[in-house]
Simulated assay, not measured.
Amino acid sequence: MKDQVAKYLGKLLSDRSASAGEIAFAAQDDVLITEGNPHLARLAGDSLSRLNCLGLVAARPSLPFSDFLVRRAPMSESRIVPNDTETRTFLHDIPFLRRSELSAEPSRQVTQLLGNRKGIIIEGIGIVASGAVTIEQAYINYSSVFHSTFVKYLQDVLDRGFIFSDEEAAFTEFRRSWLHTLTAEGLSFAEAPLIGGEAILAEVERVGRYTVERGLVDSFFGNISVRDGDVIYISQTAASLDELAGCIDPVPMDNSSTTGITASSELLAHRRIYDETGTAVILHGHPKFAVVMSMRCAEKGCRIKDCWKDCPKVRFLGDTPVVAGEIGAGGLAKRVPPVIGTPGKAIVYGHGVFTTGRDFGEAFRAMVQVENWCREEYFRLLGE
C-alpha cells in the first residue's frame, strides 16, 4: 500500500497538479496508513476513518483557481458546477467549504460532503478526493477536480474578468511559470506504416505516455488506437495513457469477437472514424484550452439548453471543426467521423480533441497545434 501511495504522490508532482510538500494520502490497509504533509495527513486520516472507502488524498493545488472559484461564488452557493464533460459525467458538481465555515473538527464536514461526491474543495486547504476501492481512484478524482476547476476558472475570467485584487497577479504568475511551451520537439515516433502487433503495442504505449507527459490529457481520460488491417488496437476503458502495457485490446473491425468488451468507451467512434477516413491512427486527449474554447459560442438567442449534446451545428476554432455529442456510444460516434476526415482533427464540446494521421507523429503534432491555437486565442480574447 505504501508503494501505491508513493507512486501517486509522484504522479501529482509530475503532472504539476499539486504543490510539493502539501500532499497527503490516507489508505485503509490492515491498519490506517497516512503519509505526507502532517496537517493534511491528519485531516485525510480522520476523514477516511469515517468513510466507507479505501483511499483518500488531500492536497493543495499548484494553482489557486479552486480557491478563487469559491471566493467568486455567491454566498448562497455551496458547490461549483463546471460544464465540461468530466464534471458532468463523473463528478456532477464539486461541493466546497468556505474558510469561514470550517469547524474545529473539519473531518466531520469532509465526511458529510464526500459521502455522495468524489471530490471537494476546502478554501485555504485544498482539494480532498476519495477512492472507493483503490488509491488510484483517489488520485483520479483529485485530477478530475483539478482539471474541472482549471477549465471553469479560465471560463469565468474570460466572461467576468478579475474580481479580487490578487487574481490578476496570480494569473500572470500562472502564465509565466506554470504554463509550458507546448511542442512535439524531442519526441520520437515510429514511421508509417506500423506493422506487426509488437511494434504497434510498443508505439501505442510510448505515444500514450507522451500524451500524458506533455499535458494533453489528465488523470486516466483519453484514448488511442491503431488500425492494422481488420483489427483495431485500442486502449482499454479507464486505462491510464502513461501505463498502457497490458491495457491495449486487439478488436476486430467487424466486432466478431468479445475482445472489445474492455476496450475504450469510444471504440465505436474510433471504428467509424476508420471506416469513413481510412486513417491509420487516432489520438484523443483533453487539452485544457481546447476544452475551454470549445464551450464559447457567439450564437445569440439560441434556445438549445444542452449544448454539449443537442447543438446540431459545426463551429470552427481556427481550421478545426467543433461538434457536440455524448461520449460513449452516443453522439461522438455520429458527429466526429463526418468532420474529421479532411482536417485530421476535431474538437468535441466541453470534452477534448480527436486527431488522426498516417502515424502518431502526425496525429500528435495536430493535437499540439490545436491546443496552441486555442491557447493563443484565449489570451487574445482576454486582451493580453
Results as ranks from 00 to 15, higher is better:
G285A: 09
A366L: 08
D15V: 11
Y210S: 03
L382F: 09
L317V: 12
L283T: 03
L241F: 02
P343I: 04
A202R: 15
D3F: 05
Q4W: 03
G55L: 02
A324C: 09
N83H: 14
A238P: 00
R271H: 09
I200L: 05
L113W: 06
F162W: 06
A44S: 09
I224F: 04
Y139H: 12
T279C: 14
I261C: 13
A138S: 13
P61N: 10
R72T: 08
A6V: 03
G341C: 10
T211M: 14
V339H: 08
D359H: 15
V353D: 01
S66N: 05
Y233M: 03
E185K: 12
L283K: 02
V292A: 03
I200P: 00
V70C: 03
H284S: 05
R117Y: 08
L201C: 04
A58K: 00
D319H: 13
E377N: 14
T237W: 02
K300S: 04
T211W: 01
N141R: 09
L158Y: 11
A129D: 04
D93W: 11
C302P: 03
E276N: 12
E243D: 15
D218S: 08
D30N: 15
E213A: 12
T355P: 03
T181A: 11
H180M: 13
S144P: 00
E371T: 09
K7P: 00
F171L: 10
Y142V: 07
E123R: 04
G325T: 05
D84V: 05
G124R: 07
A269V: 10
A138H: 05
V370P: 01
V70S: 02
A363I: 03
D67L: 01
D310Q: 15
V370G: 02
A190H: 14
G10R: 07
G361C: 06
R296N: 09
L102S: 03
L179Y: 12
L317F: 12
V5A: 11
T356I: 15
C311H: 03
A27L: 13
P312A: 14
L54S: 07
M253C: 13
S66K: 01
E191V: 06
F220D: 01
P38L: 07
I234C: 02
P95L: 10
L194I: 10
K334I: 09
R315S: 11
R117A: 05
V212F: 07
L216Q: 04
L9I: 06
A41G: 07
R296Q: 13
A290M: 05
R50C: 06
A239R: 02
V353Q: 04
A169Y: 07
V70K: 01
L182V: 08
L9P: 00
Q112L: 11
F174D: 06
D159L: 10
I327G: 13
A20D: 15
L382I: 07
L12W: 06
P61Q: 07
D156S: 13
M75P: 00
Q112M: 12
C302S: 14
A27T: 02
R365E: 11
T85L: 08
L381V: 10
E101I: 09
I33M: 12
E101V: 07
S219M: 07
S49R: 14
A59M: 08
L102K: 07
G55F: 02
S294N: 04
R206T: 11
A269M: 15
I232T: 01
F90M: 11
S294K: 04
S256G: 07
I163A: 11
A184H: 05
A280S: 14
R365A: 08
Y274L: 02
S19R: 15
G10A: 07
